[in-house]
Amino acid sequence: MIELIGIKKTYFTEGKETPVLFGIDFKIEEGEYVAIMAPSGTGKSTLLNILGTLDKPTEGKYLFKNRDLTELNDDQLSQLRNKSIGFVFQLFNLLNRVSVLDNVLLPLLYAHNYPKDAKERAINLLNMVGLSERIHFKPNALSGGQQQRVAIARALINEPDVLLADEPTGNLDSKSSEEILNIFDEIHRQGRTLVVVTHELDVAKRAQRVITMRDGKVFKEEKVK
């Protein structure tokens, strides 16, 4: 499903070169649940941005369902993100001024066709994450864990091929974290591909496979279960 081949990333600022990724190679199969473990400052965010097509590698190939993404233009990448990638962020990134339901529906705004059953779909997803009672709330009236669950529902509204989570429990207490991870398990059981970037071992251990990064390179890969 996802294949990174020799991905390098170097930032150029004020004539200075700052290499961040030094050649990353790995594969993620369809339906797999993978954790990418990395301490902060090791190019973890950069790698995630590249995986999410929010940033382009300086060198290397990124194959997504056998399509080389390094050859797509900005509009095509936007389309791809809309259709195929669901994002879950550490800081949730919900729009506080609009309702939970509208937040979940937001990605459909940029979809080719606005599905007729959009609202029904959103309500089903909110049901799955246990928030069907809260659809007309504003996000800032919810707890952190609840907000993250809204974000997960939003990430799934377009039925993406892969769910990319960036430190999804980084801002949550342990109880809420556990709830989120349980939802991830459920999503995985439904057959969706999940990639979770984290620096917490507890979170990483819930995945099938852990890819550990160090100094901009893959340090080791290991199966958990």
């Binding site: 509009d75 936007s78 389309q79 809309n82 994002f87 990134n93 729009l95 937001l106 940029y110």
Partner: peptide
């Protein structure tokens, strides 16, 4: 917000 919108598929034009 702009970052998020771009992440969920908004094009420059949108």
């Amino acid at each position: 917000e702009v970052g998020l919108r771009r992440a969920i598929g908004a094009r420059h034009k949108d």
